[in-house]
Amino acid sequence: MKVCKGETYERVFVNEEVNLNIEQEADSHVKIHVINAPFSITVNQIGEGCSTEIYGLEHLRGEDDVTAETHVTHSVGGGTSNQLVKFVLEDNARGRFIGDLKIAQDAQQTEAHQTNRNLVLSETAEMRTQPQLEIYADDVKATHGASTGQLDESALFYMQQRGIDKEKARQLLVNAFMREIVDTISDERMKELMNERLLNAIDGVVE
């Protein structure tokens, strides 16, 4: 599909597998959230001054096996892109992130960020991360980061020391991890819905 000059394409996909191949014309904007579904999103900025935002959140349990793929290409300059993909893995779940970021030789003054953060909550869950960066232009700002870890034991103990039981403390930390993605949803009603659904309402929560 094509996002025409100056237009905006914004969608939140929940529990729905996503396969998208998008070309962005000049000054167009793309903002996509995928929550709890496999996805493969390819975006090519073919016009100047575009912005692309891709957010993925996968909370996997049981035997879930989910791959999230992003392929972002800056063919011309002056554009921005941000990819943030987070996995929470429990039980025997398997997750995989494949993220390509390509900045072509002519795509000067591009700003591009790719981040993949994963929280592994069981010893039998597994996460694989394959980021790939190809940068051919020299006047660009590009960052990428990937990390896979467990819950912060010192934070868990701190909360227990205040009387919060370990299970609830874990839930608060997992929710905090996921909230970063939910907070980026523009539509307030959708954000609220996701907060309720994902961050399974905890007793005593006040916002």
Partner: peptide, 22 residues
């Protein structure tokens, strides 16, 4: 704590109310 722990994403209000009610 000698070194109080930082907990990004968990608001003081939410944290404290959960603790008090526990």
């Amino acid at each position: 704590f000698q070194y109080p722990v930082e907990i990004p994403g968990v608001s003081m209000t939410n944290f404290m109310r959960t603790a008090i009610n526990a």
